[in-house]
Structures are given as C-alpha cells and as structure tokens.
C-alpha cells in the first residue's frame, strides 16, 4: 500500500467540498486514523455541521495561520506528526492562499511539490481542495503539477501532468528576480564584522517604520545569509535594501555559485546534526526567501512585511 497519498480536488460547485470531504473524514475515523482538517473559519463550521458528533474526533486547524509561510507549514505538519502517533493520518485541507503575489504563489507551488518528497515515508492521505471560482488560476495550475493524483467525480485517478519535485524546483527558480529598483540603498559586506551591515539595515528599516519584532526577524535572517556568503561565497558581497508595497526587501549577493542540496532549507533539520539549520531558520523567519544562483553569482532575497 502506498504510504503517502497526496491528492487534489479542484471543484466549482458549492456542495462538492462536503460531498468529498465528509466521506473521506468518516472513512478515516472508522479506520481509527487521525483526521486533521485545515480550513477557513467558515469551512470548519460547515464541516463540523456536516460531520455531526463525529466532528469531535477531528482535529481542526485554521488555514490562515497554518499556511502563514511554506517553511512554517512544513514545520507545523512535522510537529503534528510527532504529536500524533497513530496508524495513519488523513488530512483535508483547503489552503486558500488568497491575495498572494506571483512570487508567493510560486513558493506555495514549490511547497506542494516538496510535500511529496518530505513526507514520502509518512503513513498519510492528504486531500487538498481548491475552489476554482475563488482561487487564482496560477495556484490551480500549480496544484495540477504537484499532486500525483487528482480526485474527480469517479474517484481518484493518476495525474498525467504531475511533475517530479526537481522539475518544479527548477521551474520556480528559473523565474528571474526583478532587479532592485533605483531607490535601493546598498552597503558592501567586506569582513566578518556583521555589526555594521546590521546597523545599516536597522537604520533604514526603522526609517521605513518597521516594527521591532519584524526587524529582529529580518536582522537574524540577513545576518545568517551574510555569514553564509562570507564563509562559502565569493566577494564582493553586497547587501541592498528597499521598500516595496508594505514590505522591506533585502538582497545579499556574492560572486560565487551556490550549489544547494535538492531541498535547501525547507525541512526542519535534524536536532543533533542541525545540517541546513541556518537556511531553514532564515526561511522560518522571513515569509518569502528567494535564492537564485548562476554563473553571475548568488542572490538571496528576503522579503519581510514592515508590520
């Protein structure tokens, strides 16, 4: 039996969600599985009503906080798996991802793809639901490339358009980063003294009205990226910063070619070896982390909301 099943249902009529979710949840409960439902407040209410008394045996989570940013979502799943040791887990989820920028949608698509690899050995069935009427077409396109199986009227079927994670990664990372705007400010990072770039980032961030907690996240993340560039990159190392639509963006570039692992920094590291801890921590701290590397050098772009 397949250990990990990852299916998508793209629907466009009101009762399709409950028609699929309720029997799926009931079958899980009857088989003694742990059932987790991640949904909007309204979705949870609807599902609770439809399940009746059985709803008490289902774990519900709010999708807005669960899907705050991909690395935190994977960490939340890992924690849930560690806390719920049962024969098998069943997940019903409707991520939503409303109001995401194209870059964020790409990262969520990457996330959906990572899940296949990260949880390949986990005894779980995950049913991801997308309401075509309210979901950005790019999210649907992504879902159709990252779920090995699709659910239709006649049940699950293999997805011919499914792409393996490596291909999805390459696709996401092929999209070039827009160049920094003319109003970006820059500082050279030319020694192991990271106190001055932090002062530079801190000064500008406060000038843009960034909240202290967000600023600390950004400083820890930027320091980590700069430390990595100093230790493994090739000078010159430059830190650029600008504000963009309520966010602060920080680029750290160096002249080296970074050849990262297959899944760099998305999965919680092993607590003893802590391999990949730095980049994972950066991704936990910043909602959007983009890494581009090539013959021209390496850029890590961090994007943190001002508030």
């Amino acid at each position: 039996m397949t250990r990990f099943i990852h299916r998508a249902l793209v629907y466009d009529r009101d009762d399709a969600f409950l028609d699929t979710a309720v029997p799926f949840a009931r079958a899980g409960l009857e088989a003694g599985e742990t059932v987790l439902a991640i949904n909007s407040a309204a979705g949870i209410t609807g599902l609770r009503e439809a399940l009746g008394g059985a709803a008490d045996s289902v774990e519900f989570r709010d999708s807005t906080s669960w899907y705050a940013q991909p690395t935190r979502t994977i960490a939340a799943y890992s924690s849930f798996l560690a806390d719920n040791i049962g024969p098998r887990i069943r997940v019903i989820t409707e991520p939503g991802w409303e109001g995401c920028t194209p870059a964020e949608i790409s990262e969520w698509t990457r996330y959906e793809s990572i899940v296949n690899e990260a949880f390949a050995d986990v005894e779980a069935s995950v049913l991801c639901m997308y309401d075509r009427r309210v979901t950005a077409p790019e999210i649907i396109d992504g879902a159709l490339r990252t779920h090995p199986e699709l659910v239709g009227d006649s049940g699950p079927r293999p997805n011919d358009a499914y792409l393996d994670p490596c291909t999805v990664f390459a696709e996401v990372d092929r999209q070039p980063l827009p160049p920094p705007p003319p109003h970006a400010v820059a500082v050279q990072v030319d020694s192991a003294d990271l106190s001055s770039p932090r002062n530079f980032i801190g000064g500008h961030a406060r000038g843009h009205g960034m909240s202290p907690a967000r600023l600390n996240d950004l400083l820890v993340a930027a320091t980590e990226v700069a430390t990595n560039a100093i230790r493994h990159g090739v000078p010159p190392i430059t830190c650029r910063l600008w504000d963009d639509d309520g966010d602060l963006v920080v680029d750290v570039t160096d002249a080296g070619l970074w050849e990262p692992d297959a899944v760099p920094g998305f999965l919680p590291p092993d607590p003893v070896s802590r391999s990949g801890f730095g980049l994972w921590g950066v991704r936990m701290l910043c909602p959007l982390v983009q890494l581009r590397t090539g013959a021209a050098g390496t850029t890590v772009r961090l994007r943190v909301p001002l508030r």
Partner: peptide
Amino acid sequence: SPDLTEVVELIGGRVLP
C-alpha cells in the same frame, strides 16, 4: 529579550530542544 525568546520559540522547539 522578547525578541530573542520569540526566535528561540519559533526555531527552537523541536530543533533546539
């Protein structure tokens, strides 16, 4: 500080138990 506590709790937990 509250900032440091937040970082330790966010990335600590299972990774820096």
